[in-house]
Design a binder for these strands. Sequence first.
DNA 1: GTGGTCTAGACCACA
DNA 2: GTGGTCTAGACCACG
Lengths: 133, 133, 133, 133
Amino acid sequence: MHLRLEPASGSPVYQQIVDQVKRMVAAGTLRTGDRLPTVRELASQLIINPNTVAHAYQSLERDKIIETRRGLGSFICEPDSQLSHDARIKQVSDLIERAVVEAHHLNVSADEVRKLLEGHFRTLYPLEDTIHE
Amino acid sequence: MHLRLEPASGSPVYQQIVDQVKRMVAAGTLRTGDRLPTVRELASQLIINPNTVAHAYQSLERDKIIETRRGLGSFICEPDSQLSHDARIKQVSDLIERAVVEAHHLNVSADEVRKLLEGHFRTLYPLEDTIHE
Amino acid sequence: MHLRLEPASGSPVYQQIVDQVKRMVAAGTLRTGDRLPTVRELASQLIINPNTVAHAYQSLERDKIIETRRGLGSFICEPDSQLSHDARIKQVSDLIERAVVEAHHLNVSADEVRKLLEGHFRTLYPLEDTIHE
Amino acid sequence: MHLRLEPASGSPVYQQIVDQVKRMVAAGTLRTGDRLPTVRELASQLIINPNTVAHAYQSLERDKIIETRRGLGSFICEPDSQLSHDARIKQVSDLIERAVVEAHHLNVSADEVRKLLEGHFRTLYPLEDTIHE
DNA sequence: GTGGTCTAGACCACA
DNA sequence: GTGGTCTAGACCACG
C-alpha cells in the first residue's frame, strides 16, 4: 500500500491517512479482507510518529472501515453502513452544499461544478459507463 | 440576522459563524451593503466571547465576504475574488472530491449525488433555468 | 532567528513580526523549509504574549509565507501566490504609488527614489546582473 | 476640491483624506495659498462625520501641509520640510523597501516594479521629461 | 459606540 | 512538546 502525505495540505497527517485509505477502498484499490501495513511499518515508511498512524487506524476502526485483530494486523472489513439512509444522504448533502456555496463565492459556474463532479466520478469509477443522461 | 451554533458539531464556533454567513450571502439572505450585527451584539446573542465573533468577522474579511469599517460596523461587500482562476477551481474541486469519496464510502450513488447538487443549485439560483436535463 | 521590536513605531507588534519575517524570507536569510521559533519561544524572547506571536504566524500562513503543522512548528514554505496577476500587480503598484507621493511631498527627487529602489533590489538579488543602465 | 472615499480600501477615512490632499499637493492640483473646504462643507459633501474631517485636517496641519487660520479656513502652506535630508530619505526608503519585499513575495519582477515606478512618476509629473535615459 | 490590539490563562487536538 | 480555540478583560483608534 502506498500513501503520500502532503505536509502543506493543512489537514492533519492522521486525517490524510484516513482519507487516502477511504479513497482506496472507494476506488477498489483496497478490498474486503486486504491487510493494511502494521502501525510500525507505515510509520517508518512515512517517517512519522507511530502514534499518528495508530490514531488514524483507530479512526478507521470507529468508522467500520477496518478491523484490527490482535496479533494479526488490521484488515479492510465488509462495507457495513449502519447509518440510516437519511443520515448518509445528509452527510453527503452537507459536503455538496459547502462546495456549492464556496463555488458561488469563488465565482465558479454551476456547469464548471458539474464538470468537476463528473471528473471525480470518472476517477473513482473509470470502467463504468457514467455518461450522464 | 439569526445564527445557530451546534456545540456538538465539533467544528470551531468561529468557523460555524463564517460558514453560516457565507451560506446566507450565497443564498441571497444577506446582500451587498447589508450590515452585520456588531461584534458585541452577536456575541451576547450567541452567548460567546466577543473575540470569537471578531475572529469570525476577520476571517470573512480576509475572504472579501464582508468589509469592516472601524466605528461603523461590518458590511457585506461586492463579490470579488482576487484568486487566479486555477486556484478557485482547485478549491472547489477539492471540496467536490471529498464529497464524492464520502458518497462512495457511504454507498450513496452517483445519481443521488447529482440530485443533491442540483438541489443545492436550485436553492441558490431558484430563478434560473438550469437547462441540465 | 533574531527579531527586533520597536515599541515606538506605532505599528502593531504582530505586524512588525510579519514584516520582518517577510523581509528575511525575501532576503534569503530564511529559506524554504527553515523552521521558525515556536510561538512560545519567540514570545518569551520578545517578552510578549504568545497569542500575539500566534496572530503574526497565522497572518504569515494566510499569505503562504509559512506553513504550520500542529505539534511540529512553523516552516517557511515554497513561494506560491494564488492571487491573479492583476491583483498582485495592483498590490505592488499601490505601495509604489504611496512611496512616490511621499517622496514628492518630502522633496525627494525621482532619481533619488530610483537609486533607493535599485539599492533594495541589490540587497535582495545581490548576484544578479540588473542590466538597468 | 473633489475627493473620493473608498470604503473598501481598509484604510481609515481620515487617512484617505490626508493621502488625497497630499497627492493633490504633490501633483500641483493644490498650490500654496489655496483654500480647502471648511470642515463642515467637506463633511457634508462626503457624508461623513465632521470629526473625521477635523481629524484629517489636524493631521495635515501637524505635517505642515496646511495651516488653519481662525475664522478664515484652512490653506495650503509653503512646502517646508523640517526633517533632515537623511530622515526624509529614510522614510521613502522604508516605503520602497516594503514595496520591493512585497513584490518579491508576489513574484513581481524587478522590471515590472521599475515600470510601475515610472508610471507613477509620469502621473505625478506629466509635463516633465522624466524619460529615464 | 464601533472594531483592533494585546495580555493572561484555560483546555483541546496533534505528533 | 507543538499550535488552535476560547474566555475575560484592558486599552486604543476611529467616527
